[in-house]
């Protein structure tokens, strides 16, 4: 029994380690946009880069922040209006990248018990389509819209 237990633990440990290494998803510049103290919803943004040979997708996000729920959304312009459309997943193609930015893909943190302030850190766990998880820390800062053509207008204060 004991040997079995260690074998299982060892296997689990190996799986855990390999999943971190094999995840191959590089997350850069994660941030949560500073919001009014009574904001009913927050948005988190980042750049996801997939350095593997297989397509990946972000399927779920968990956070240490006390919120009612987390959803994946994308803002689209249609019908002369900006529409937020909930997404089942955010696809990151093999050797491709996906930018989560204002006016586009974003992680929506709905119903925060307390709104974090500038400079705070928000822990996020990204769950990927291959079952792996990645823990990241997003800083709270002010932000602005990304212009069409990828010209970044993020503001740092």
């Amino acid at each position: 029994m004991k040997t079995n237990f260690y074998r299982v633990m060892g296997a689990l440990l190996l799986m855990a380690t390999s999943s971190i290494q094999a995840a191959g998803l590089m997350v850069s510049d994660p941030w949560v946009r500073a919001a009014p103290p009574n904001a009913p919803a927050l948005a988190a943004f980042m750049t996801l880069e997939n350095h593997t040979n297989s397509d990946l997708a972000l399927v779920e996000v968990r956070t240490s922040l006390p919120v009612a729920r987390v959803e994946l959304h994308r803002t689209i312009m249609a019908d002369g209006m900006m529409k937020m459309v909930q997404q089942k997943q955010m696809p990151v193609a093999a050797h491709g990248s996906l930018q989560l930015k204002p006016g586009s893909w974003h992680i929506m943190l709905i119903g925060p018990k307390e709104v974090p302030v500038m400079g705070d850190s928000v822990a996020l766990t990204l769950v990927l389509s291959d079952g792996s998880e990645q823990k990241i820390t997003a800083k709270v800062r002010k932000g602005n819209m990304m212009m069409k053509g990828g010209h970044n207008k993020m503001m740092h204060h």
Binding site: R33, A35, P36, N38, A39, P40, A41, L42, A43, H73, T75, M82, M84, P102, G103, H106, M108, L109, I110, G143, N144, M145
Partner: peptide
């Protein structure tokens, strides 16, 4: 106010 993306921007 429940708008998390467009209105804050």
């Amino acid at each position: 106010t429940r708008c998390p993306d467009v209105c804050p921007t």
